[in-house]
Amino acid sequence: MEEVKEVISMPRIGDQAPGFEAMTTMGPIKFPEDFKGQWVVFFSHPADFTPVCSTEFLAFAQMNEEFAKRNVQLLGLSIDSVFSHIAWAMNLKEKTGIEIPFPIVADADGRVAKLYGMLHPGESSTATVRAVFIIDPNGKIRAIIYYPLSAGRNMREILRLIDALQTADKYGVATPANWVPEPQVWEFTEENTKVIVPPPTSYEEAVNRAKQGYECIDWYFCKKKLS
């Protein structure tokens, strides 16, 4: 008998961004219509209450103003409910003082993740990979980045990519390797050298995590220095 395989669609650069309606932490959205006239950085993360994602969300939140200056709206997504997203955002605010100022799409059934090819079965069949779709003010996909579950993204690179796309549009030019709009130093501190401790997978481990000598923001979010 012939084998039947499900073909998962993968939008490509130059395609119109696939449309969907969904609930977010900031109310319902109709995508991409509601974002017309703005650039959108639409990014997925594997799951709420996971440590690498938390560092990414905090980094995006801290750079939100820089994105806003460039007429960019950030939009997150994971295969979780809106209640889980809200609880996680509140947890991050409580533990770090940083508010998540952008909406997070609740995609509990994975409908939007499938539409955007954010599920890579070789990596995980239930958690979205770290995908980034850069969508222009006319709703066209202009760049796509994929990272695996284990490596957090560099938000400065995403901002640099926005600058490169906007500069190319404005001046009819292309930008070379390592191009930046103005001389700048990307600062990396001691904090950037720390790695994430895999989060506990049982209640008992979670309870004991705080006693293990890691730098913990919460039970699921601990870092350490490699010796």
């Binding site: 900031m26 109310g27 319902p28 959205i29 109709k30 219509e33 509601d34 974002f35 017309k36 006239g37 703005q38 709206q73 909406p103």
Partner: peptide
């Protein structure tokens, strides 16, 4: 919607959602 977003300081997508 852009004018309303500027006056109310609310995100554009949220204004469009309310208007709808």
């Amino acid at each position: 919607p852009v004018e309303i977003a500027e006056i109310t300081k609310r995100p554009l997508f949220q204004v469009r959602s309310s208007l709808r």
